[in-house]
Nucleic acid binder design. Structure first.
Lengths: 295, 295
DNA sequence: AACAATCAATAACTATGGGTTATCAGTTAG
DNA sequence: CTAACTGATAACCCATAGTTATTGATTGTT
């Protein structure tokens, strides 16, 4: 009866909720399966709520379990941040901002931000992690990331999104391609080529934008390869496996043997945006956002 | 060494941080003082941070301790809310809004809100608590209240404030007073009377507004009594101990033997506002605010 | 249909560590 | 100096988290 909820329960519950498999969850936690079973059961008794349905060899979350999973992920992430901040406060420093970003943001925006952050708030530390659009979205919601740099048109309620960098698109061609910046008239000239694009689920907005560019030129592109790494795309173009359209700023920062033709005459732009959560309690975040938007 | 932080530590830490006295904190927690001492020490070892300074018979929080106190209060309050929400989710319902209010809000705004809330979101429960302006402010910040109904001009950063009800002021006079609604010209007529007002620290804005009303009429009121309850003020007026100026809507809902004269010609208004916290994660709150603001 | 394989739950046991009482070592007040 | 406080230490106890061994139930295989 008189048991108390403890953080241990939360860690155990989350392990099971994520694995949906007691034995695997127990392994991950370095404890035995029966011990885990008992603790979860106890947790259900304390909360007086069924968290899992386990009939017919299947483990699944109940609605209540689903809700609790989200809240506990938030709570534990927030607790982790608090611990970090605590040692910083203890050392007389004041905070850490956890930043996620798409590879392409590393060319301009991120280095810029880091330099100005160091100038103005030398007491704020940063941690950087390269992640996909969707991974950043989830991480920001779950409070394991403070801000993300993404290419998205809109975000779920509870998040803020603000554009921070607009870039033209460029056509990427092999060095020996007949089209060059002198005789280039419009992308209609390369309508027959194979296209190499960033994968759709990696960046839906990018994909749709490229499609609209081609539509405007009156053709539907034949897509032969998809990738999530700029480097790969350039290598493929270099080896005559197709051509690409990418944000212009990607032409800096890679070693490659291809030519870029800026499509500055078309209206579409590659927009990089910051996202963060309305209810993020990290005080260092406010400074970081202010730095990004004002000035 | 290989110890883990647990919720127990948080409750113990907060008890000591609030009492600043080990024995009293231990009493409050229904455990022995040595046990508490050991747990706090262990917590400091786990976090590798000094949380209290205890030299010369004094217990005080360090800067880090102060920071941790705030964060843990938030975390534990949030956890409490999550538990409540969880049982509601489990029952197929969806949330609870914790409402604080000044007594005067009970005349119009609160009943109105409750009725419309029940209509539109029957699944949302409410808990109501009558509190002073400052008590509501603190509770909202600490996440032990979702919204408050207050009379304040501005609130600290991190909070939102929106006016929801504007009321004229009324002069409150004994039934047999020579001034009445027929021969009433302006409050200059009662400049010589004793005034009975709501206490200044109970509602600074109200107090200042009354002062400005009298200033506009060219006199400084002689304040003979202060109170925090409307009922008390009316009783005092009834017994010829002075006159009062209060929000007009207070004339409904009390049994009293006084007369009200609405001061609709003066510019000052009694403004009741909702306050809530930007980073409040309660989904039910959003609905509640939307209902209050959009109509 | 019988078999092995794999799941979570149950039972019985062990030992870590949270909480206890008793005591000590400072500090303050009278 | 004594009495009355404080919080910290020491030594003990026992509740309970985690262990191993086993069962029962479901699934896939031959």
């Amino acid at each position: 009866m008189g048991y108390q909820l403890e953080l241990r329960h939360f860690h155990y519950f989350l392990a099971v909720a994520e694995e949906l498999h007691y034995r695997k969850a127990a392994e991950r936690l370095f404890i035995s399966q029966p011990g885990l079973s008992r603790q979860i059961k106890q947790m259900e008794e304390i909360l007086e709520v069924e968290l899992f349905v386990r009939n017919k060899k299947k483990v699944a979350l109940t609605t209540a379990g689903e809700y609790l999973k989200g809240e506990l992920q938030f709570l534990l992430n927030h607790l982790e941040l608090t611990k970090k901040q605590l040692t910083l406060v203890n050392e007389g420093n004041f905070g850490e901002v956890r930043i996620g970003f798409l590879g392409s943001a590393m060319q301009n925006v991120i280095p810029d931000l880091l330099i100005r952050l160091k100038e103005k708030f030398p007491q704020i530390k940063t941690s950087l992690e390269e992640l996909s659009n969707t991974a950043q979205l989830e991480a920001v919601i779950k409070d394991s990331l403070d801000i993300g740099f993404v290419r998205l048109a809109r975000v779920p309620a509870g998040l803020f999104i603000k554009p921070v960098f607009e870039d033209t698109f460029s056509l990427v061609l092999p060095k020996d391609h007949t089209v060059d910046s002198v005789n280039f008239k419009g992308i209609g000239q390369v309508a027959k080529e194979n296209f190499i694009l960033f994968a759709q689920d990696y960046s839906p907005l990018y994909y749709d934008t490229i499609m609209s560019i081609c539509e405007d030129a009156g053709f539907t592109p034949k897509v032969s390869h998809k990738s999530v790494h700029a480097q790969t795309i350039f290598k493929l173009v270099e080896n005559n496996l197709g051509i690409a359209i990418v944000p212009t700023s990607l032409q800096y920062g890679f070693q490659m043997n291809v030519k870029f033709i800026a499509l500055s005459h078309i209206p579409q732009r590659a927009v990089l945006s910051v996202i963060w959560k309305e209810d993020n309690r990290n005080p260092a975040l406010r400074h970081c956002i202010a730095l990004l938007l004002n000035e």
